[in-house]
Design a protein around this nucleic acid. Structure first.
Lengths: 142, 142
DNA sequence: TATTGTTATACTCTATAACTATA
DNA sequence: TATAGTTATAGAGTATAACAATA
């Protein structure tokens, strides 16, 4: 199969290794904030003033809708997000960050930024290239 | 703090998002093999003919020892790994891959290699750059 | 006494299937 | 009928605390 050429295969192997190495450190990142990795991810995905429908969240997370229900239940119980009925289609519920949620998210982003120390050692050019490549990888459908 | 400059912070955020995006897709990778992400990870870590003590596995996974007990219980129930008492210290149990486990692990590695499809769409130059950058990130101590 | 792994317990994450309300 | 979200249920992952066997 042509997707296993040397360059991309090597890059993939490195990404997987880097991914696993960092993954173990991610829960620690949200540790002081009492967030599980999944909650951490959800909070990361909802930007203030930019509400997200639950269905889209399920798509982005790549998990079942029933799962999102529980996830949001817990976040809502902590007063971090709010469900509101969508104006156009009343079956849809959109998620808004509360002020508390917004503040916690900001803390979270600061913690994430703190993890970028290694990346800061890259040259500016490499940083730009990395950003561009990652954007390609993330945006590319499937 | 100087590690929070715009370029590295953006790159880090994208890396984190990419990790999570992949994380949700990992079960799919082991899907045909009926492996959860955690089991996937454990099997990935035990090389044939190179047994691993349970304690070291807990360290590598970054989780509690009690967690490893359950994880290994399920793998052992499927005949993929085997607990054996260590010769030197009989408190320690080392994990060996069974022939079945070894075969499944080989399949797993082939699937991982297949995951490089997205990366194959990058230009050769980008692939080389990505490899170089990732090597820097991984080799750099902490 | 200290360490390795297990057990008991509790909570979160995850999926499937059946259900409700809306379209 | 089809879709968005919920509920019920079950299994896996995770941590803490108490425990057994060994050092």
């Amino acid at each position: 199969m042509k997707c296993m050429d040397a360059g991309s295969s090597r890059a993939w192997q490195l990404l997987v290794r880097f991914f696993f190495a960092q993954r173990e450190r991610l829960p620690a990142a949200g540790d002081g904030l009492d967030l599980s990795p999944a909650q951490w991810h959800v909070l990361h995905l909802i930007e203030p003033e930019q509400p997200v429908p639950m269905g889209r969240l399920a798509d982005t997370l790549g998990c079942d809708a029933s799962n999102v229900t529980g996830l949001v239940d817990r976040l809502e119980a902590r007063g971090l997000v709010e469900r509101r009925a969508s104006a156009g289609d009343r079956r849809v519920k959109v998620l808004h960050l509360t002020p508390t949620g917004s503040r916690l998210r900001a803390q979270l982003l600061r913690q994430i930024a703190g993890g970028s120390c290694r990346l800061a050692r890259l040259s500016s050019q490499d940083q730009r290239t990395l950003v561009r490549i990652l954007e390609t990888l993330i945006d590319d459908p499937r």
